[in-house]
Amino acid sequence: MNKRYFLQASVVIVGAALLPQYFTRRTETMATSKDTKFEITKSEAEWQTTLTPEQFRVLRKHGTERAFTSPLDKQYAQGTYICAGCELPLFTSDTKFNSGTGWPSFFNPIEGAVGSTVDRSFLMTRTEIHCSRCGGHLGHVFNDGPAPTGKRYCMNGAALKFIAA
């Protein structure tokens, strides 16, 4: 075995061992932190009986729905957006805006309704947003939103329900 082949093989083996963590690694999230306590806790089986398969995938498995598939993206009536898992009010329609991203976007949550964690999946660092009562994954927040906060809470429509005023 020559030196070049040995070095190439070593890089491939080490890369194969280390690379997956950059696609799936989450820091301080429900996926890795079992001591996080939420007011509403259920077993995986209980969540599956109360949520649709898409809601379960998004809220409990940190999934993301395809862009432009949620009817809530174009919902602009007056009302409140609540967690699809526990029905906690999360956002009001007064804070919703059209971000053009294909997901319902808001510039400010209802005070105390959401929490955040660091998400280091997919070779990037993002701020993940979850429901403060049940811990359900809602989406991510970015610093490119409108005034007055400059924040864009980019939420999965599957994680929300809309209650008209």
Score class of each variant (00 low, 15 high):
69 T>R: 00
70 S>A: 10
70 S>Y: 00
70 S>H: 03
70 S>C: 06
71 P>R: 00
71 P>Q: 01
71 P>H: 04
72 L>D: 06
72 L>E: 05
72 L>M: 06
72 L>N: 03
73 D>F: 01
73 D>C: 08
73 D>T: 11
73 D>Y: 02
74 K>A: 13
74 K>M: 01
74 K>L: 01
75 Q>A: 01
76 Y>T: 06
76 Y>K: 02
76 Y>H: 10
76 Y>C: 00
77 A>E: 11
77 A>F: 01
78 Q>D: 14
79 G>F: 02
79 G>W: 03
79 G>H: 02
79 G>Y: 00
79 G>E: 06
79 G>R: 02
80 T>H: 03
81 Y>E: 11
81 Y>L: 09
81 Y>D: 11
81 Y>M: 08
82 I>Y: 06
82 I>N: 12
83 C>Y: 06
83 C>T: 05
83 C>R: 02
84 A>T: 08
84 A>Y: 07
84 A>F: 06
85 G>N: 07
85 G>Y: 01
85 G>Q: 07
85 G>E: 08
85 G>W: 02
85 G>A: 08
86 C>S: 11
86 C>A: 08
86 C>M: 09
87 E>Q: 14
88 L>E: 14
88 L>M: 13
88 L>H: 09
88 L>A: 14
89 P>T: 09
90 L>K: 03
91 F>M: 10
91 F>A: 11
92 T>G: 15
92 T>C: 07
92 T>L: 13
92 T>A: 10
93 S>C: 09
93 S>Y: 02
93 S>G: 10
93 S>M: 09
94 D>T: 10
95 T>F: 07
95 T>R: 09
96 K>Q: 06
96 K>W: 01
96 K>G: 04
97 F>S: 00
97 F>G: 03
98 N>V: 03
98 N>I: 01
99 S>P: 08
99 S>L: 05
99 S>Y: 06
99 S>M: 08
99 S>H: 07
100 G>E: 12
100 G>S: 14
100 G>H: 12
101 T>K: 06
101 T>V: 04
102 G>P: 07
103 W>P: 05
103 W>M: 03
104 P>E: 02
104 P>Y: 01
105 S>I: 04
105 S>A: 13
106 F>M: 12
106 F>E: 10
106 F>W: 05
106 F>K: 09
107 F>C: 15
107 F>P: 12
108 N>S: 13
108 N>P: 01
109 P>Y: 04
110 I>R: 03
110 I>P: 15
110 I>H: 12
110 I>L: 15
110 I>K: 06
111 E>A: 13
112 G>F: 07
112 G>E: 10
112 G>I: 04
112 G>V: 09
113 A>F: 11
113 A>G: 14
113 A>M: 12
114 V>D: 15
114 V>F: 12
114 V>Y: 11
114 V>E: 14
114 V>P: 15
114 V>C: 15
115 G>I: 13
116 S>E: 15
117 T>N: 14
117 T>P: 05
117 T>F: 12
118 V>M: 14
118 V>K: 14
118 V>I: 15
119 D>M: 14
119 D>R: 08
